[in-house]
Amino acid sequence: MPEPEKHTAETPGGSPGEHVVRPLDPRSLRGLAHPLRIQLLRALRRQGSATASQLAERLGESSGATSYHLRQLAAHGFVEDDPERGKGRERWWKAVPGGTVFDESLYRNEDPEIRGAVDVYLHEIASIHTQELNTYLGTRNDWAQKWLGASDMSDFTLRLPPAKLRELSEKMHALVEEYRTAPEQDAPDAERVRVHLHAFPQHEG
Score class of each variant (00 low, 15 high):
Arg27Gly: 02
Pro26Ala: 13
Leu29Thr: 15
Leu59Glu: 03
Ser67Glu: 10
Tyr68Asn: 05
Val20Phe: 04
Gln39Ser: 05
Ser62Asn: 08
Arg58His: 15
Val96His: 11
Ala74Leu: 01
Arg108Phe: 03
Pro16Met: 12
Ala33Leu: 07
Arg71Cys: 06
Leu73Arg: 04
Val20Met: 08
Arg30His: 09
Ala33Pro: 10
Asp81Glu: 15
Ala52Tyr: 13
Glu18Ser: 11
Glu84Gly: 08
Ala75Arg: 06
Leu29Met: 12
Arg58Glu: 13
Leu24Ala: 08
Pro83Phe: 02
Trp93Thr: 01
Gln39Val: 05
Leu70His: 09
Leu29Cys: 09
Glu61Ile: 03
Arg58Ile: 12
Arg71Ile: 01
Arg45Met: 04
Gly64Ile: 02
Arg58Lys: 15
Arg58Trp: 14
Glu84Lys: 08
Glu57Arg: 13
Ala50Tyr: 13
Gln47Val: 06
Arg27Asp: 06
Leu40Glu: 07
Lys94Asp: 08
Glu84Val: 00
Leu40Val: 04
Pro26Thr: 07
Lys94Gln: 15
Arg46Gln: 10
Gln54Arg: 08
Leu24Ile: 10
Asp25Asn: 15
Ser28Ala: 09
Gly31Asn: 09
Gly98Cys: 01
Ser67Leu: 11
Pro97Val: 04
Val79Ile: 05
Ala65Met: 02
Ser28Lys: 08
Arg45Lys: 10
Ser53Thr: 04
Gly31Phe: 09
Tyr107Pro: 07
Trp93His: 02
Val20Gly: 15
Pro26Gly: 02
Asp81Thr: 10
Gln47Asn: 14
Phe78Met: 10
Pro97Ser: 14
Glu80Pro: 05
Glu80Ala: 14
Ile38Thr: 01
Gly99Arg: 14
Ala52Arg: 14
Leu73Glu: 01
Gly64Met: 00
Gly64Cys: 04
Ile38Gly: 00
Pro23Met: 14
Leu59Pro: 09
Thr100Asp: 13
Arg85Leu: 04
Tyr68Ser: 07
Gly98Phe: 05
Gly98Pro: 04
Val101Trp: 01
Gln39Lys: 01
Ala75Leu: 09
Gly60His: 12
Asp25Tyr: 15
His69Arg: 15
Arg89Ala: 06
Pro16His: 09
Arg42Ile: 03
Leu40Ile: 07
Arg45His: 08
Leu40Ala: 01
Leu41His: 03
Val79Arg: 03
Ala95Asp: 12
Ser49Leu: 07
Leu40Gln: 06
Arg45Val: 01
Glu61Ser: 08
Ala52Met: 11
Arg37Pro: 09
Asp103Val: 11
Leu32Met: 13
Tyr68Cys: 02
Arg108Asn: 01
Thr66Met: 10
Ser67Gly: 02
Gly86Gln: 03
Ala56Met: 05
Gly60Asn: 12
Ala33Asn: 06
Lys87His: 03
Val96Ser: 11
Leu55Met: 00
Ala50Phe: 11
Thr66Glu: 13
Gln47Lys: 11
Val79Trp: 09
Ser67Lys: 13
Ala33Cys: 08
Asp81Lys: 06
Arg58Asp: 06
Tyr68Glu: 04
Leu40Pro: 03
Val79Tyr: 11
Lys94Gly: 07
Ala56Asp: 09
